[in-house]
């Protein structure tokens, strides 16, 4: 019942926003460049049959997935290595603090000039920007592992590796997953930004740039943005659902303590 009212209210909200957008553009409150919501939705639907657009989406997602996967593997491995070697950890902390605040999009020009293939540049850029949230969450989570759990295993005669595998990693996993989710959003922003700056017609960003030429097609631009938003939302929802499934024990524990 409460679920139904939520759905109804959400639908009302979406319909309301669309109606207002439609009215604003039709009534001509703003200049002619704002296309009606209905047109934009229609264009977005037409994209389903547009192979050019779909291949652009594919190329964007490919770079994004590769970069994110690479970043997850590397960042978790580095995080584990660092948390088991305190002297290295101390030294890398300064390095991390120096490199993390660099806005990853500032590296776009560098990525353009230093890699020969566009996909390579995109993947490296996503990799770089996605590493930080995952690495930092991994380090933080591994430092916060309940020492009692570790000592329990040690008292049963387990070695360092077994403790890392059986206690530290599982209890850090939910936080690592949160890091991956943050990185996923950041990565999407970075890929699209790269494509917009590189300006060679690659990916969703490149497609959007093309629509700008020749007077501009705002309806196509907004339809593209809607696709990007829906993709981003789906990715987020998917990752959250995955986290919920995989870490049910974690949710139960944090709720109980709250």
């Amino acid at each position: 019942m409460t679920n139904w009212t939520r759905i109804v209210r959400g639908t009302i909200g979406v319909a309301g926003v669309l109606a207002v957008a439609e009215l604003v553009s039709r009534a001509g409150f703003s200049d002619t460049s704002l296309p009606p919501a209905s047109t934009v939705l229609l264009r977005a639907a037409e994209f389903f049959g547009d192979t050019e657009f779909l291949s652009a989406v594919g190329s964007t997602l490919e770079a994004w997935v590769l970069g994110l996967l690479l970043a997850t593997v590397v960042a978790v491995a580095v995080g584990m290595a660092l948390s088991t070697t305190p002297w290295l950890n101390r030294a890398t902390r300064v390095l991390v603090e120096l490199m993390r605040p660099i806005p990853s999009v500032a590296l776009i020009p560098l990525a353009i000039v230093s890699f020969s293939s566009i996909t390579e540049s995109k993947v490296s850029l996503v990799f770089y920007s996605a590493c930080w949230p995952i690495l930092i969450n991994t380090l933080y989570a591994l430092r916060d592992v309940d020492p009692l759990a570790k000592e329990t295993l040690r008292s049963f005669g387990f070695g360092k590796a077994a403790i890392l595998l059986r206690v530290s990693l599982p209890s850090a996993a939910p936080f690592v997953a949160t890091g991956v989710r943050i990185s996923a959003a950041v990565g999407l922003v970075v890929v699209v930004s790269f494509e917009l700056v590189a300006g060679n017609g690659e990916g969703v960003g490149g497609y959007l740039l093309q629509t700008q030429s020749g007077g501009g097609r705002p309806d196509l631009m907004l339809a593209g943005a809607i696709w990007a938003g829906v993709l981003g939302a789906l990715i987020n929802v998917g990752l959250v659902a995955l986290e919920r499934r995989a870490f049910r024990w974690h949710a139960v524990r944090t709720e109980a303590s709250a």
């Binding site: 959400g10 639908t11 460049s33 969703v204 501009g216 993709l231 981003g232 939302a233 987020n236």
Partner: peptide, 25 residues
């Protein structure tokens, strides 16, 4: 509850994708 879907969507739009549109406007 009314605005939740709209906000979830708005948050998910990578802001750079709107730059071409903002340039036109």
């Amino acid at each position: 509850e009314i605005l939740d879907p709209v906000l979830q969507f708005g948050r998910a739009v990578p802001p750079p994708t709107l730059i071409p549109f903002f340039i036109v406007v």
